[in-house]
């Protein structure tokens, strides 16, 4: 049985997406780039169009966006406190981007950008930089570095840094950074593998649409939510006193 693991979509709705291309001797994964920008453009155009015509008696689209913004406003305020508003746009945008990236695969011919490991890795770099930079900004560099030597020794009321705990803390930070993108990628890619393998086993009868809905909509929504929540939690841990 010949199972292609990243199947070519049956048709390409848009031209110029013939797999990898070589510009400046770098490999570009064109579907990933294309669909990432497609989602970014969709989000930007829709939210800008709604923002330009805000009404007291909202339209359906405005109501939907207000629901999402309101939910994330509550979430960030409840876990980041009074600084929550500042991180609302960051967390909400990550959620919307990852969510649309995950569920866009249920449209025939569309490919999830998150199926490519590079997209979650890029998002991870963004999240880690934001978390650590805001940690340094809120607590100051001295206190930020001191966190890595916690818990230290207390000798006669003086705090002595513990040099043996620092490597563990640093490895813990690296582990957080590695597990964040691989969780998203593993879930989406594993779902894609299961869809392909089971569809071949069942000769595409009956089950594949339900698999698509389960792995695309259900798992995709949960993983997007988890990614945004973990981004927020890392930031909250970094800026907590």
């Amino acid at each position: 049985m010949d199972i292609n693991i990243t199947p070519e979509p049956p048709y390409r709705p848009f031209p110029g997406m013939e797999g990898e291309s070589d510009i400046l001797n770098l490999g570009f994964n064109m579907p990933t780039i294309f669909f990432s920008w497609f989602i970014i453009g969709l989000l930007a155009v829709v939210s800008f169009a709604v923002y330009r015509k805000l009404r007291a008696k909202p339209t359906r689209l405005q109501l939907l966006l207000e629901l999402i913004v309101d939910a994330f406003d509550n979430l960030t305020q409840s876990s980041l406190g009074k600084r929550g508003r500042k991180y609302l746009a960051f967390v909400g945008t990550i959620f919307l981007f990852v969510w649309l990236s995950n569920i866009i695969g249920i449209i025939p011919g569309f490919e999830e950008p998150t199926r490519d490991l590079n997209t979650p890795l890029g998002l991870m770099i963004l999240v880690i930089i934001v978390a650590h930079a805001s940690g340094i900004r809120v607590k100051g560099l001295r206190k930020y570095i001191r966190e890595y030597f916690e818990p230290g020794f207390k000798i006669k009321g003086r705090w002595i840094p513990n040099p043996f705990i620092a490597p563990l803390n640093i490895v813990g930070e690296i582990g957080k950074a590695i597990s964040l993108p691989f969780r998203l990628f593993g879930n989406i890619f594993g779902g894609a593998i299961i869809i392909v393998v089971l569809s071949h086993l069942l000769l595409f009868v009956g089950l594949p649409p339900f698999l698509m809905f389960f792995f695309g909509l259900f798992v995709g929504t949960i993983q997007a939510f988890v990614f945004a929540m973990l981004a927020m939690t890392y930031t909250a841990v970094a800026i907590a006193d």
Partner: peptide, 11 residues
């Protein structure tokens, strides 16, 4: 969130 973190080893 807790389940997602404990899922790491499986991933």
């Amino acid at each position: 969130v807790g389940q997602a973190v404990s899922e790491s080893t499986g991933i």
